[in-house]
């Protein structure tokens, strides 16, 4: 049985690996459920962390290869822990200071190793308006998934991945469109509050499908159809929201004027 101790052991081992890199590591920042102390054993994945490397690591091939040898071993350690695993993020110090990650690294995070560089990051607003519109770009990807809803036999694994992506990406993008930067699962509640007219009566069945151990093709088609319907409803409400909040002028300025 997977327990909290398994997560702590994996984290300690990861930290020890990073420590061997000495000054090449400027900081390691932990975010997500581990940083918030909200680990759900067996469900929470490992490791939501950002390894910030000294700029010189990227300038010198030998130093880069040596450093990455260690980082790859750290990934292998995490993978062999038996916990749900995905690789951590890495940035040079310069890249991190311009990254869009700055927001959540500042709000839901803690420093695992090295200096606290979070305060020195200003975040990037270079794509602010484009980020606000990302929902409408993501909508096209959900439309792509629509084909699965019409198939007689649906690949349940593909359907579950699509539904998982829908929950994480679409609600986060919807929150961004409302001017709120937050991530799944908080983004679902936030969107629910900001757009009370949104019909989410089928959302629970979509979430249940994502968690289902043995989903049927019928359940897969139904969950995808619901996800698609919610996406289309969100599309209509978000455009209305953007147009009614005096933000449309700024958004429209993103495009070349019509001849």
């Amino acid at each position: 049985m997977i327990t909290l101790e398994h997560y702590q052991e994996a984290l300690d081992r990861f930290k020890r690996r990073c420590e061997t890199l000495g000054e090449r590591v400027v900081a390691v920042i932990l975010f997500g459920s581990m940083a918030r102390g909200e680990i759900s054993p067996g469900e929470s994945d490992i490791l939501d962390a950002i390894v910030i490397l000294h700029d010189r690591v990227f300038a010198d091939k030998a130093e880069f290869c040596q450093t990455f040898g260690v980082l790859v071993e750290a990934c292998k350690d995490l993978e062999s822990s038996g916990l749900p695993f995905h690789p951590f993020l890495y940035y040079s110090q310069n890249e991190f200071s311009h990254s869009f990650l700055s927001y959540f690294s500042l709000t839901h995070s803690k420093v695992l190793l090295g200096s606290d560089v979070r305060e020195s990051t200003g975040g990037s607003d270079r794509h602010g308006s484009l980020n606000q519109l990302a929902f409408f770009g993501c909508r096209r990807l959900m439309q792509r998934a629509a084909r699965l809803t019409d198939l007689h036999t649906t690949d349940q694994t593909a359907a579950q991945s699509t539904v998982e992506w829908f929950l994480k990406a679409m609600f986060t993008a919807a929150a961004f469109a409302c001017g709120q930067e937050t991530f799944y699962p908080e983004s679902v509640q936030l969107v629910r509050n900001l757009l009370p007219e949104l019909n989410l009566e089928n959302l629970d069945s979509v979430i249940a499908f994502k968690r289902s151990q043995a989903p049927t093709p019928t359940a897969a088609r139904e969950a995808l159809r619901h996800a698609l319907d919610i996406t289309e409803d969100l599309n209509d409400l978000l455009e209305k929201h953007l147009r009614s909040n005096n933000r449309w002028g700024r958004i429209a300025s993103l495009w070349e004027p019509r001849p």
Binding site: L130, A134, G137, C138, L141
Partner: peptide
């Protein structure tokens, strides 16, 4: 291939980059 459907008033959405694609 990929199917995209938009209302005529939504054609601007084609110029919004999809960060996942």
């Amino acid at each position: 291939g990929d199917l995209i459907w938009l209302r005529r008033s939504e054609l601007w959405q084609l110029s919004v980059p999809n960060p996942y694609a």
